[in-house]
Design a binder for these strands. Structure first.
Lengths: 113, 113
DNA sequence: TGTATAGTTAGCAACATGGCTAAGCATGAT
DNA sequence: ATCATGCTTAGCCATGTTGCTAACTATACA
């Protein structure tokens, strides 16, 4: 029940950009170098590096250098806080529906009297 | 297989702010007026209205005026594109693991020779 | 050693975001 | 009719984001 999870801010923000989502989709299929990601997106290298650092700060991508090439790898576990949040919301929503249900049932019982 | 879904941009962006997530959590429990949302957050009304419009544009909240009070309601269906995207990513990732698995199996078979 | 390749860094410009105050409008209560 | 309430709009300010170019570093290859 995190009141103000900065991790979620970073996660959702990272995913709110189509270029970053494209990068992630590529990386979900396997690791790739920065230049390949740049090629796929059509953006210049510095731009991609910035996006990459956003993804890294959100924990969605881990990178390491092999010689002069930086290899980027998708980190699926980083999505967990998001799915947890979704689940929390669903629970709230369903509890609400349950209460509504009770309410309606009571109304119907009252009517029968 | 949306190449550049602007809907997802709006969705993820809307969820990237803690104040907006707090508003959503409140609304998941049932409808509320703008003033109540402002009270919960501690921010001023205009600020909350701005957040509200972001949530509305993402389709996450629907509002309507009853007299002079605007009632806000959570729209859980709006989360669907996000869960779909998550599912797509998961598939990509698992396909990758499958290919890795095949690769390792082949390696082991080679070794047996 | 020299040259091409792969990143990296600094910094600029345009625009978006998130907070605010002040002033306005519409509705409900007296 | 008047006043309080609840929302709405306009506009300001500080900061963050997203693209770029230019200049730099570091590694591989000949």
């Amino acid at each position: 029940m995190a009141k103000h999870d900065p991790n979620l801010d970073l996660l959702f923000h990272a995913l709110s950009d189509p270029t970053r989502r494209m990068m992630l989709s590529r990386l979900a299929k396997g690791p790739a170098a920065v230049t390949e990601l740049a090629g796929l997106s059509g953006f210049k290298l510095p731009t991609i590096l910035r996006h990459l650092s956003v993804l890294e700060e959100a924990g969605l991508v881990a990178t390491q250098k092999d010689g002069r090439v930086r290899s980027c790898a998708f980190q699926p576990k980083a999505l967990q806080p998001m799915t947890d949040w979704l689940e929390d919301q669903r629970k709230l929503w369903e509890a609400r529906l349950d209460r509504l249900d009770d309410y309606v049932m009571n109304l119907m019982k009252e009517r029968e009297k």
